[in-house]
Nucleic acid binder design. Structure first.
Lengths: 164, 164
DNA sequence: AATTGACCTGTAAGAAATGACATGTCAGAT
DNA sequence: ATCTGACATGTCATTTCTTACAGGTCAATT
């Protein structure tokens, strides 16, 4: 299960509340993993039970900020370094790209143009993110990768949209 | 649920048995969606029940070849064209890339080098696939996209592995 | 003073996915 | 003749994920 280690990894970046983690899954991590708050809160409880995270402070609205324990840090490292990655993925957008060839010319064009619009918007968001990021923050490399992949995807989509 | 439409899409490409579908999920579709045979067989039964697919022939070892019905084709088209894509994805490899920044220089290098090796191998497979593919087969464009994304990923991974 | 919207945490039923179990066929090699 | 490996289909218990329900706080606007 990757959710556990995704949460562990986000907490390693900075101590957070469940609410903040939910937002991170929707924003920075959205092109890698997705999780709802209804999964996150029980998972935080589980991490605490395992001794990998603990509540380090409580906010005025009942919020609980979790941080990794030493055991949590070493578990995260162990997982990243020693556990062979599970390469299987679930990506509906990619399934659609794969199946786009089945459509007739008009439908195909419409579908690819919809995707072009989406990727363009994502590109704008990534650019904005990069521009107000400390350039020597380590996370900048990941944003850069996102931009590069978006660029080739956009080029390919445009080729497909203008095909026939 | 995308599994349903992924199966529908594979059957639209060519009528297949559950066993063949399972292999396609492991091979051609592996970077987009993953499904085990234990999910595929019940799904085929469901598709038949919905009237979207039917058994068109039976092989000597009890195999059943399914094909789309007309209703199945129009459902697939409807989904591709009219249903807004679910952009949420699950990709453990991407989570790991995202979290790689948390590691110390040595661990990070080892992890990125493992990924380089994996992507190189995948690249070789994609090249082989492209080379024995009819160049005007529509599927060739998808293989090409895979190769382009692999290329930028490989470049980025090498940069990361040789950083510091 | 009331309202709105962001913040904040949880639970529970049901759907989807995995891993293990279970069974059998057929072709080719030893 | 036996064995191995690919072919082939299914079920079931458990785990994971989604959707819907449910409740409460606080700051800023009206």
């Amino acid at each position: 299960m990757s959710l556990r280690h995704a949460v562990l990894g986000l907490l390693a970046r900075r101590p957070s509340t469940g609410y903040e983690l939910a937002r991170m899954f929707d924003l920075s991590l959205r092109s890698a993993w997705h999780a709802k708050h209804s999964q996150i809160y029980p998972e935080l409880a589980k991490l605490e039970e395992l001794g990998w995270a603990e509540v380090v402070s409580r906010g005025p609205r009942g919020s609980k900020t979790y941080a990794l324990t030493d055991a949590g840090h070493s578990e995260l490292r162990r997982w990243l370094v020693e556990v062979p990655p599970d390469r299987g993925q679930r990506n509906e957008g990619a399934v659609r790209l794969f199946l786009g060839q089945l459509l007739g010319p008009e439908d195909r064009r419409a579908v690819f143009e919809r995707d072009v619009a989406y990727v363009e918007q994502e590109e704008a968001e990534l650019r904005a993110l990069r521009d107000d990021l400390d350039p020597d923050e380590p996370f900048a490399a990941q944003v850069d990768l996102g931009l590069r992949i978006n660029a080739v995807l956009l080029e390919w989509l445009r080729e497909q949209a203008s095909r026939d």
